[in-house]
Design a protein around this nucleic acid. Structure first.
Lengths: 135, 135
DNA sequence: CTACCTGCAAACCCTTTGCAAACCG
DNA sequence: CGGTTTGCAAAGGGTTTGCAGGTAG
């Protein structure tokens, strides 16, 4: 967390692309996007930069359904809608329906950083796919 | 999700132990616990049974901070407090401060299943450890 | 200059899976 | 009995890391 971070071309492009997309891509998906601008970038570099950007608070990592981590450059409080089938995440319009949620928290036993709210469900694409398959 | 599940000794003990512990153990932690009662059980069996129990809705899986999945036999709505350092999860007293949260949801585009709320922070153990290390 | 960062590839580690034997109902 | 489940071990797949060369400041 010592912020001796350099703004390299790779880091800048990764951040730009993550801010641009509306999805919450996995490292691998972002790798595919960034490679259009930096063809010789490596997946390891993408991971390292996402890690650094998260450590310095410029982006957030999301772990929910699915085995892969996802990343979000939108730091505002918003609710995520996660699909248990495909793991994709969409944002819900409107902010948080609650506040800081640290009321009944013993600060000596837990230092509050943030609240996360998500709804779990099945997205339209996966639902339609299931209906097709099951007839 | 076809519930042709048999109640084997392994599955029963895994469920019993998961219901008994107050933590939200990883598969590996639960493996260590269950092995006290079934010494020759394998980690693969623990994973398979947790998967089956989750598929039939008897337990829940949690993915948050940390790379390992965690499991929870408490199906009631409760807020999780996750430590970003060690990945451990504790329950917050009291239920959910909000309701179903599917108000501004287009049901044709997302089938609602559940709401998850967690707070992110640093637990007492990790905080004390950091204070010791940094002087 | 030089400490930090990159690309590459191998290592890591959690999780899943194939198989023959064991077991539940 | 017949289809599930188990233990074992190997495979899988996302993420991390060591290293030598490259680069920001």
């Amino acid at each position: 967390m010592s912020d001796n971070q350099r703004m390299t071309k790779q880091k800048r492009v990764i951040l730009e692309e993550l801010e641009r997309v509306r999805t919450h891509p996995t490292a691998d998906e972002l790798y595919g996007i960034v490679r259009k601008r930096i063809p010789r970038i490596s997946l390891g570099t993408v991971y390292r930069n996402l890690e650094m950007l998260a450590a310095s608070g410029r982006i957030r990592t999301i772990r929910t359904c699915g085995k892969q981590r996802r990343f979000d450059a939108d730091l505002s409080d918003h609710v995520h809608a996660s699909c248990i089938r495909c793991g994709k995440i969409k944002d819900l319009p409107g902010g948080f329906p609650i506040g800081r949620l640290d009321g009944n928290l013993d600060e000596s036993e837990f230092t509050y950083i943030a609240t996360r709210i998500e709804i779990i469900g099945i997205c339209g694409d996966c639902k339609r796919e299931e209906e097709t398959r099951e007839g």
